[in-house]
């Protein structure tokens, strides 16, 4: 079963680039796929540019409206995602618990719709 793991964190909560903590965190991200072999399979995953780069769009009565910024104004921003294949929720949660963002933000685990 596929699960989408979305990572949320406040920008000031995570280690800043250039610090040893940041390098250690990135090391953890890069090693995650390998570390979680046997628990869940990594299918895809990306980190996102900061929320200041986001554009939100909607179309109403044929007209496109664009807005500078994210869809929801929250303190914790969507910062990245994983798509994994796991046997059940317990395995997906075990994967989620190893994502560094779980320590300074939150990870939402959602099953992917099956058609």
């Amino acid at each position: 079963m596929k699960y989408m793991l979305t990572l949320y964190a406040a920008p000031d909560a995570e280690p800043s680039p250039g610090t040893p903590e940041f390098d250690a965190m990135m090391g953890e991200y890069f090693g995650l796929e390998e570390k979680m072999k046997g628990v869940a399979t990594f299918l895809a995953g990306e980190g996102l540019q900061p929320v200041q780069t986001a554009t939100t769009l909607r179309k109403r009565e044929g007209r496109v409206e664009t807005m500078d910024g994210p869809f929801a104004e929250t303190r914790e921003h969507l910062g990245g995602f994983y798509l994994i294949e796991a046997a059940d929720l317990d395995a997906a949660l075990r994967f989620a618990a190893e994502i560094p963002a779980a320590r300074y933000g939150s990870v939402e685990v959602r099953p992917v719709m099956e058609y």
Binding site: A87, D88, D90, P111
Partner: peptide, 9 residues
């Protein structure tokens, strides 16, 4: 839907 397992952990 989330496949919460029916098992002893």
């Amino acid at each position: 839907a989330a496949r919460i397992p029916f098992t002893v952990p």
